[in-house]
Nucleic acid binder design. Structure first.
Lengths: 123, 123
DNA sequence: TGTTGACTTAAACCATGGTTCAAGTCGTAT
DNA sequence: ATACGACTTGAACCATGGTTTAAGTCAACA
């Protein structure tokens, strides 16, 4: 089982180490082990969890909700239903947001077309 | 030409009036006219501009960039090229963000599948 | 043995995007 | 005349999501 230092994790996932410490403090990364010198060492499981946290962060889930989710993971199988419900709700929120962005993009495309046309005409 | 009060605009676009004032203060809504009592009155052109601002906001353009864009609109045709370039860059940024969200959604879908399966098995 | 580099902590600091508050001004209905 | 509701302003306040700083610890290398 390979363990990584915080700087290795930081480089590998391209996240500032300060952010990783911040996430741990906020409860998004529980149960991180330490070596004899008190330094964080990240197991494969921790890397997997961090990957999940990044998925949720990339889809704009608030940190407080990610913490709730992680708390449920730690709590165990009794929270499976709640986690499933949360992921389903979140999925819908993400789809809604993508739809809004896609719709708004039309307004931007319209500007691009108009500006392109106007610049053509001016030549 | 129909003019709207701030509360009408607020209701019509579902934006808090405090936010509309904030946008004006930040320079996103220049040249808003006032009635004799000093109250804002929004022309059709202002509504169109506000629509554009909302498109950019919905696609996560920072307020400072939206202000730059609006400044260029006010400046006139000499800024057409810069506006076009900005919209093209922004479009790419939006496409990138949608791609990241879509990719991250796979991780969420995977959780949904796994939790659904585990809950089936438990029954 | 001493210095270097990577790490630790708590606390302070920061940017962004608003929201809320306090005090005052109008226009209209009673 | 006055009371009400909608509006005005500037300033203070707030939440979110980090980043930076200061002071210290530890392991390894010269």
């Amino acid at each position: 089982m390979k363990y990584r230092s915080i700087s290795e994790v930081s480089a590998e996932l391209d996240i500032p180490d300060s952010t990783i410490r911040y996430y741990e403090k906020k409860g998004l990364l529980p149960l991180i082990e330490r070596d004899n010198a008190g330094r964080r060492i990240f197991s494969e499981d921790q890397m997997t969890l961090l990957g999940t946290v990044m998925c949720l962060k990339n889809t704009h889930m608030p940190i407080s909700d990610i913490k709730q989710y992680v708390d449920w993971i730690v709590e165990g199988d009794s929270t499976l239903e709640r986690r499933l419900e949360m992921m389903n709700n979140h999925k819908q929120a993400v789809l809604d947001e993508i739809a809004l962005m896609t719709e708004s993009l039309k307004g931007i495309d319209y500007k691009i077309e108009r500006y392109t046309r106007q610049l053509q005409e001016k030549k």
